[in-house]
Amino acid sequence: MKQIIKPPFFEIGVKNFVYGDAVLEMAMAADEAAYRYDIDVLFIAPYTEIRRVAKNTTRLVILAPYMDILRPGRGMADVLPEAIQDAGARGVVINHCERPMSLPAIRQTIERANELDLLSFACADTIAEARAIAQLHPDIINPEPSDLIGTGSTSEIDYVQQSIHAVKTIYPDILVEQAAGITTGSQVYNLIYAGAEGVGAASGIFLAEDPITMMREMVSSVRRAYNDLQIVQ
């Protein structure tokens, strides 16, 4: 059965900032933070670490960074959906700016993920692209402007609210994350408070002086912002 993600959530993109034991160390710390603050933490693990992370954590929602749409059989060097699922992934990232895809390929990958009850986490570079991808009904859309990734500057609140509206008017059940340029807990707080259902970070965590402390700060900010938002609503 497909994993159900409940807002608010936080997403950690490992990319290739760390590898080996350092991935597992972050994963285990994130797993503890997910329990402590009672939020779902999505963990985009390198392929080589998916199984080990899955075996050593219980609360993390592990995503693969990409998959192909082939089926068991031939396909040297392709990423088999059944294989990432067997390793412990509960979903897959689609159309990240570092691995862009055409709309037909996005559609096929979402359909293939649905066959296996894998979450589809789709990235979009613009509001227009988010609107187009929303028509394909992924589980989560991350409308992050690629020119902000790694800059320390986050999307303006108007962009956040417009991108959420663009997706929700098509399918209200699609979860909308905000990411790109996030380097502090206060940025995480502001985005959740502005209406984002989830926030994600990669370089903002792994390039910090103390990555685990930064991750904990960001996860706690998700919970704090969401709780504060409930009070005023």
Results as ranks from 00 to 15, higher is better:
3 Q>W: 11
3 Q>T: 15
4 I>A: 12
4 I>S: 12
5 I>G: 04
8 P>I: 02
11 E>P: 00
15 K>S: 02
16 N>P: 00
17 F>I: 06
23 V>F: 11
27 A>F: 13
29 A>L: 09
31 D>Q: 05
35 Y>S: 03
36 R>T: 15
40 D>A: 14
42 L>F: 08
45 A>E: 11
47 Y>T: 01
48 T>Y: 14
48 T>C: 06
52 R>A: 08
56 N>H: 15
56 N>S: 12
57 T>S: 09
61 V>E: 05
62 I>L: 13
67 M>K: 01
68 D>W: 06
71 R>M: 12
72 P>H: 07
73 G>C: 02
73 G>A: 02
73 G>Q: 05
74 R>M: 13
74 R>Q: 12
77 A>I: 05
80 L>F: 15
80 L>C: 11
80 L>M: 15
80 L>G: 01
81 P>F: 12
81 P>R: 02
82 E>C: 04
85 Q>N: 04
86 D>A: 11
88 G>C: 03
91 G>Y: 08
92 V>D: 14
92 V>Q: 10
95 N>P: 14
97 C>L: 02
99 R>S: 08
103 L>A: 02
104 P>C: 09
105 A>N: 08
106 I>W: 07
108 Q>R: 13
108 Q>Y: 07
111 E>A: 07
111 E>D: 12
111 E>V: 07
111 E>K: 10
114 N>K: 12
116 L>V: 03
119 L>N: 00
121 F>C: 03
126 T>Y: 06
128 A>N: 09
130 A>W: 05
131 R>A: 09
134 A>N: 09
137 H>V: 07
140 I>E: 07
142 N>D: 14
142 N>T: 11
143 P>F: 14
146 S>T: 10
146 S>K: 07
146 S>V: 07
146 S>R: 09
148 L>K: 11
153 S>G: 02
154 T>F: 01
154 T>S: 03
155 S>M: 13
157 I>A: 03
157 I>Q: 08
159 Y>V: 03
164 I>H: 01
164 I>W: 06
165 H>P: 00
173 D>W: 13
176 V>H: 11
178 Q>E: 13
179 A>E: 10
182 I>V: 07
182 I>C: 02
184 T>Y: 12
186 S>F: 06
187 Q>N: 01
192 I>V: 04
193 Y>F: 15
195 G>Q: 05
196 A>Q: 08
198 G>I: 11
198 G>Q: 04
201 A>P: 14
201 A>R: 05
204 G>N: 05
206 F>K: 02
208 A>T: 10
210 D>I: 03
215 M>W: 09
216 R>Q: 15
217 E>C: 00
221 S>M: 11
223 R>K: 14
224 R>I: 09
226 Y>K: 01
227 N>C: 02
227 N>V: 03
230 Q>L: 15
232 V>F: 14
233 Q>R: 15
